[in-house]
Write a protein that binds this DNA or RNA. Sequence first.
RNA 1: GCUGAGGUGGCGGAGCGGACAAUCGCACCAGACUGUAAAUCUGGCGGUCGGAAGACCUACCUAGGUUCGAAUCCUAGCCUCAGCA
Length: 324
Amino acid sequence: MNKILIITGPTATGKTSLALKLACLFGGEIVSADSRQVYIGFDIGTGKDIPRRALRKESPLGVFYEIKGVKVWGYDLVSPKEEFSVAQYAEKINRIIKEIQGRGKLPILVGGTGFYIKAVIDGVATAIIPRNPGLRQSLADKTPDQLFENLAQIDASKAASLNSSDKKNPRRLVRAIEVAMWKLDNADRGDLKTAKESCDALFIGLNLDNDRYEKILRKRVIERLRKGLLREIKVLLKKGVSWDSQAMSSLGYKQWRGFFAKEKGKKETIESWYLAEKKYAKRQITWFKKEKRIVWFNPESTDYPESVEKLIQKWYKKGYAEKN
RNA sequence: GCUGAGGUGGCGGAGCGGACAAUCGCACCAGACUGUAAAUCUGGCGGUCGGAAGACCUACCUAGGUUCGAAUCCUAGCCUCAGCA
């Protein structure tokens, strides 16, 4: 069966460096599962660990980097001026993964965007339903209550199935309406199914003790500044990337908007960025708690990374035994 | 020392006699999530009991007072800030 290794967990737990190590060990290739590393030019702030001498190569499947002899996919998928979505991500990445497996290599999906990982591994049934800009435009000014009413008229059962939080979430409601409308227009297609061939996936999760995040996240923020984040943002702005773009809604970027507008001080900006990182890590943990397939490790424990390697070794070998 | 402003929950900041355990924002805690997911959204947030409705207790610098009733009015004290000396 096609194997895929997943390395995930909240931000700043050392996923990439573990992945690099494992890739060397098992002859794998890295595939980024990160909703921000897909943007060209968003490097320092998104933590693309690209050494200066890394090779950037083109291939029919898109660009990849070669870092310490390991291929890294999933960076630089689109221009930061474009909109992007899970569906696009999953489509591109599934193709890449297949290709890696075809060459007999182990794909290592690495990243903290839980939804993206889920989309790749399990598929998303409604992914084929595209955006409807006109519809979105026409719904833009509606209140959540109005949107909910609207949805209830088109698809009562979907409306009824929403939880109390999503009922008040305009973005989700708009998409739900979009999906409902599409289904109405495409009734002949029947029910949507997630066409996903099963694969043998091993989920590794990295998580620190709660009280360690503060220190590590503060360090990260300072480090990224030192690496030239501000310069990176300036370049992006010069190239015409808008503050309102999806890409610029990223952590470590959007916080600087006020600073560049001379409305906020540097210190204040850094503080709010740090806090945002902390909250983000929490949200990620909330998501991952539900993912029961993950086997968790603490990168600061004494038997790390040996214990991880052992587990993967076992899982990886099992496949070979089956094959031969 | 004089003059003016002010002291409210972890912080910022409303309230200025009853409807106040105290709007709101931040932080914090918990959660949702099927084409924006580093996005978006929800709930909680003095204490005790309760699933909840609710009940009770302790609260708006301190001490007195006025009042049926005070975070809100009065007096004194302490402290902070701004201006003048």
